[in-house]
Amino acid sequence: MRPIRATLIVSTLLLGLFIALPAGPALAAPNFKAPYPCGQRWTYSHHSAEVRLALDFVRADGGGTAGTPVLASAAGTAYNYYQAGGAGNYVVIDHGGGWKTYYFHLASFGVGHGAGVGQGQVIGTTGSTGNSSGAHIHYEQLYNGAGQTISINGQSLAPYPGSYNQKYLTSDNGCSGGGGKYWVDTFANATGYKDAQMNDAQGLLYAGTNYVYCKVWGREVRVGDQFNHWWLRTDLDEVYAGKNGWGAYVSAYYLSRWGNDEARDNNGTVIPNC
């Protein structure tokens, strides 16, 4: 009986040691990026009633907030939800290791429920659904269900401002080299064609923030003294019956930020040739 008793004593001591061990450190957060397209400058604020350390973002570079794409700030699995009296249309991205991000008040969803997403992928469009007084991105970073002070590119945004136009953040999410997409602003709906010679109209690219892949030299588009020979390969928002909206060409004339025969993204990077 004595050997059994000794074994029990040793086991009890070992169990006590395991119980006394402190919990391991929190897993490192993903390298979160801003939840809106490359080159865009937004201002942000925090409302004291928001208990999960959320920030609200609105655009501050002259572009419209409503309808701007909302991007995944890190890779993960996206889930779509709706809450009429609160978040409206919202997306939760599970990044693994206990980390999640939340994106509230979306006008529309851009991914399916349970879909895997990459950093910089469009997950919806900015809106004002639910309990919201105007278009904005309500953004949260959570670890094991608890709100964390928001960090972008490893840098904390604290201390939070209590109103807009005190602090600003320019995005590098989805910039050149990220998935082969270049984010650009267009000032009007643009017809997309099968080639850069304006042959065979395929549909429309809506005004706003859009991605393009590359550029080719083609037929001049001119209005008065404004012109452009570059054509941007992209995917269209509206496709005409019987046509193909993937890989169509839209004139760089419609770029909001650049002049004659220029084709740059919102970050000022020259869009590469196809």
Rank of each mutant, 00 (worst) to 15 (best):
D265W: 10
T101L: 01
F18S: 12
G242T: 07
W42S: 01
A158K: 05
N267A: 15
G224H: 07
V58W: 00
N144R: 06
R5A: 15
G208D: 05
Q83V: 12
Y102D: 02
V250H: 03
H138K: 04
D61W: 01
A74P: 01
Q121F: 10
T12G: 15
F109E: 06
H47E: 11
A6D: 12
H47C: 09
D225Q: 13
L13E: 00
G85I: 05
G203S: 09
C175N: 10
K167S: 14
F109D: 04
D94W: 00
T170D: 00
L205R: 09
A146L: 10
G96S: 06
G88I: 04
A207M: 03
D235I: 07
P159G: 13
P69K: 09
G120H: 07
W231M: 05
W230D: 02
Q202N: 13
D94F: 02
G259I: 06
L17V: 15
Q197M: 11
E50V: 04
R41G: 01
W217Q: 14
G134T: 08
P30M: 05
H138E: 01
E50C: 10
Q202K: 10
H138N: 02
D56E: 08
G118S: 15
G147N: 07
W230S: 06
W246M: 13
I93Y: 07
P30G: 04
A115Y: 02
E220W: 03
L17W: 11
R233W: 00
L17Q: 11
I150K: 03
K243D: 07
N266C: 08
A78P: 01
G120S: 06
K33V: 03
N267G: 10
Q119L: 11
G179W: 09
G16E: 03
Q226E: 04
H138F: 04
S48G: 02
L204R: 07
K194H: 14
L71H: 00
N153Y: 08
C274R: 11
G178V: 13
Q155V: 15
G39I: 06
F227C: 02
